[in-house]
Structures are given as structure tokens and as C-alpha cells.
Nucleic acid binder design. Sequence first.
DNA 1: AAAATGTATGTAAGCGGTTACAGAATTTGT
DNA 2: ACAAATTCTGTAACCGCTTACATACATTTT
Lengths: 327, 327
Amino acid sequence: MNATIYDVSRLSGVSTATVSRAFSDPERVRPATRRKVYEAAAVLHYQPNAIARAMARQRTDKIAYLICKKGATILDEFYAGICDGIMRTANRSDYQLLVSTEEDWRLTVSTLQSKQIDGVILGGDAPAELVSQFQSQNVAVVLVNNRLAGVPCVVADEEGGVRQGVELLAQRGHRRISMLVGRLNPYVVRERYSAFLAAMGERGLSVGAGGARMCDADVESATAAALDLLKGKDRPTAVFGANDVIAAGVIKAARRLGLRLPEDLAVMGYDDSTVCAMLEPELTSVHIDCRQMGELAAARLMALLDGQSDIPPLTVVPTQLRVRRSV
Amino acid sequence: MNATIYDVSRLSGVSTATVSRAFSDPERVRPATRRKVYEAAAVLHYQPNAIARAMARQRTDKIAYLICKKGATILDEFYAGICDGIMRTANRSDYQLLVSTEEDWRLTVSTLQSKQIDGVILGGDAPAELVSQFQSQNVAVVLVNNRLAGVPCVVADEEGGVRQGVELLAQRGHRRISMLVGRLNPYVVRERYSAFLAAMGERGLSVGAGGARMCDADVESATAAALDLLKGKDRPTAVFGANDVIAAGVIKAARRLGLRLPEDLAVMGYDDSTVCAMLEPELTSVHIDCRQMGELAAARLMALLDGQSDIPPLTVVPTQLRVRRSV
DNA sequence: AAAATGTATGTAAGCGGTTACAGAATTTGT
DNA sequence: ACAAATTCTGTAACCGCTTACATACATTTT
């Protein structure tokens, strides 16, 4: 059995209250006493029991990252990057991180909400209903990569990213540019697509032949869609993929059609994931600092839990174009 | 404030013991009583407090996945896949999953071990010392993608995977085959590399010009190493990358040297990650079912926690060659 | 119908900490 | 040196649930 606070109390000759203070608020006990406590604790290999502490304090020092998205989830580099950022920030402040991607979130919620976590970060397409569920249970909520009124949100500057991309293509003389959009997270699709239309409109550019095109989110269907898009007579001279996977599909399609890259076709990706460097030619892409998004989301959440009231309702993380050989 | 078991007890007119039983072991209370309890609970929106329960039962129903690896961790598709498998399995059995990749594991351990988790799955290069730390704290341990005597381990059949790869290359007439090894997890490097030498030896094949070559784990350094490897006079006709990222580097190098793929050079990867389909030509690779590894690891851990004693000390997940156009 | 057996429920003592409040010890002021 | 102010420490109630044990009730057996 593990040593308890009583054992330490007995061995060190002070009360449990003092032992407790020595560990949770050292300033409140005199140095000499504190030393006695620590010595006894060391002898007994005492480690405060986090469960008991959580029980007494009504706080668990745990937060959760819940990815509301169908299919592969944490596997997605984007969500994994956010997860990584959250994890680092949480651990640094002695918070533990629970991760879940349960698709049937009703289930997850009931397990999470039985007071096991202090707060939750919702990634992906979180339904408003879910948010209020948590809030009604007094669990703090922060959204990442999504927006909802009344909840602190951390998002990337999608509009800026798309704009930079379009700008570069325009600069390089492209006039017919298409966007190939996959069935990504609805928020992302909406943002990137409307930003694309806006950026194109501003410059009076035509939205390629066939305009924007939808496809699934995998390479195969992106490749098929791209083949279709590029076969037309007035084919675009540049294609903007809504993410890197889609852009990779475009590259494959271009290769199959014997188009030279970037001479015959410029390709631009989004997310700046690790594949960019692996592709030939290397893919120009809009970089999103996922880790930072995660870090900020975690920071906001922890600030909420600390009772800080000046949490900005919206935090926008800048995006940045990484120009490589594909344009 | 949330309703407690006392509130339910009062409203339903039964003792707290009965309420407790109605929730944790329904069979032990008569149907009529049970109904009364559930009704009262519904009225009060009662949800058993998991912390209190953990305290009383000395069990938290939480497990942790700790990735012992430097640098990007969960970001690695391989570890993310395992994580996904663990998550699914854990959630299905009402376990919660804590994830951490703290590099300074001493820190993490102390936070984890204060009785906050029932068991832990260690991924990456877990030091034996760490394992015994957990065990001495009565925390069950399972290793994934690593081996250590006395601890249940779940690994992939690396030897079989490498063998299949070499076999295919030999079949296609390759005689000079090199392996390009990156600074991956030591266990993986050891397994794959020795399996490679063994498989080559068995067939009396020569280990390409320059034999196996080391590089860092990123595309750039793999590309550089591959350029070097392929420039020689007796260059290998096939290169086996120790993982897909490295193989991607080989492809890039080949392209730069004007080699045709797969005619002039066959390239083989390992892990069958999502990039395989994005590369041109698509990369032949050894598929590892990471999710299954995670699922099995979680299952083993939960079996341990259930007190089952027939846990196999080693579980080997089969690997399978996915043949694509790069060979 | 009483005794024997089995099942359902209640009582109360934990689980291991925290913290309000009170009392003791120390420091400060004069 | 003594009172007042301040800082430390101790006592004990509480956080919400589980479970061993005791008791009440229902069902069989004789």
C-alpha cells in the first residue's frame, strides 16, 4: 500500500493539515516544518493521491481534447498537431490531457461530464448542443478550428492564407485558377472556399474552367476530380487544393496527363503538412501552425479555469505561405 | 451544484447503498426498486461522480498512453495510429485515455503515478527503469512497438515485413539492394536492419554498393543520403527505405538523378503510411496495422487490470506487403 | 405454520485528501 | 517587558461513493 498523508503526518510529527499545506501551498508553512515534512515524505515515498485531492478540491486538473469528426481523427496530421500543442501546454501547467474522438459524442459526454474534467477543447465540427451540454455541467469549453458565438475560439487565419496563395498565383501570371475542395470539416471548407471566391473576385480573376470542384478527402478521388478538371479545353493554369492531400492528387493527375510542373500547371496546397517536402515538385502550401493553435486553445482554457475574465472571444493564428517549387 | 447519491437516496426513499448498487451492479437490486432509483435520478439529473467512485474503489478506469520518443510524437502517423486503436478500445470498455509524450518522463511519471491511472501503455523507446517505476507503483504496463522481458509486448512482425519486401525485389530480379536506415526508434532500426541483413544473406544477395546507409529521419537528409548512395558506379538497383519518409527521399533523389522509376530503380518503403498513395510513382510499402496494434495493446492492458493471468507475453501483429508501382 | 434458506436493503466505516475555524506561537510596537 | 498584531499549526468536518456486515423480507422446505 502507498503511504498516505496520515503516515507522513505521524512520522514528521505535524498534523495532516500542515502536510497538506506543505505540498499544495508551501509558502504557508514555516521552512523548518516544511523540511521535516519533506523528509518524512521522502522516507515513505509519499506521493499525494491525486484522486483524493480532486475529490476534496472539486477540481481534477484534467482537460479533454474531443475531436468531433467522423473517421480517422487523431491520425489527421492537422488534429494531431493541435493535440501536440495542447499536450505540451497542459503538461507544462500540471494538467493532464484526456483525448477522445468518440463519434457518438453523447456517450463520451456522459462519461466526461461526470466531473472528471475541468474543461474541454472541442476540435472539428462541434455541434452547439454539445457545447451547451458541457457548459450546463460547469465544464469550461474552448473551440479550436471552429467558431461559435459565446465560446472562446481559436482559429487559423484562413482568409489570409487563401489570399496569400491567390496573390502569389496572380503575381506569377495565372488568370484561370480553380480550387479543388474536398469534403473536409464544414467550417474549413466554408472559410477556404469563400475566401477563395472573394480573393479571386477582388482581382477580377476568373474561377478557372469548371470553377471550384468538390471531391472526397482522399487522394484517389482528388486525382479523379483533378483529371476531369484538367482535361477540359480551357483548363486552369493553376489549381489550389483545399488541403495538401488534394493538392497531391492534383499533382498525380497532372503527371498522368503529361503536364509539366510548374510550367504547365501550378499547384498549391493548404496546411503545409509533412508531405509537402516529399512530393516532387515540392508543394507550395499555406502553413498553419497547428501546434500553436493547440497551445493557445489550452492557454485560453486554463485561463478560463483560473477564473480570468479577459479571455478574448476569438484568437486568430496567422497563416503563412511556404513557397516551393510547385508554382 | 450537482445532485449526489444522497439526493437520489432521499427522493427515491431507498438507502444510498441501494442507489449505488442500482448504478454499479443493477442485478443486485429488485427491478421495482431499481426503477424508483432511476426515476429519481432522472428527475435530479443525477450522474455518479467518477472521482468519488474512483476514490472508493481505488480504481480510476483510466489508462495512459505514454510515447517515449524525442521530438514530434503524436504527430507521427505511426504513433497516432496506435493511439487511435487504443482510444477506440478503451472507450468501448468505458476507460478514459490519457495521452502524454513528455520527454522528461521522470516528471510525467510522478504525475501519472499518483494513482491517477490503472495502467499505462508505453510506446517508443521506453527505458526499463521506467517500466519498473510503474510496476512498483502497482500500475499495469504493456509495451507497444518495443520488447522487454517480463512485460507484455505488442509488436509488428518486422522480420516478416522485411522478408516479404526483399523477396519481392529478388523476384523482380534485383541483386544489389541497399537499405537506407534513418534514426528511428532504436528497436525498430535494430529489427528492420537485422531482418534485412538476414533476408539478404539467406538469398546470397549482396547488400548493394555502400551497403546500408544511415541518415536522419527527415526527407532532406534521406534525399541527401540517397543521392550519395545512387551516384556510385555500382549503385543498387533497388533501395529499401526503413520507413516511407526515407523512401520518399529516395524517390526524390532518383528523380534528380534522372533515373526512371521503377525501371532504373525500385524503391520500397515501410509503414504504408498515407503518403504512399500520394507519391509518384505510388510507393510499395510494408503495411503495419497500427490501429490493431493499439487495440491489442489496450486489450492486453485491460485484461491485466481485470486480473486475467493468461496474458501472452508477446503479441506479434502480422505485416503485409502492399505492392504498388514503385517496384 | 414454523423453520430453514436465500435475497434485498440498510447502516456505517472507510477511501485520502482540503480547508474553515480556532488556538498556539512568534514577531512587532511601545 | 507586555500587549497587539501577525503568522503557524491543529482539529475536525467534509468531498460523494463503495462495501462489509447486519438486518429485514421473501421463498421453500418440512
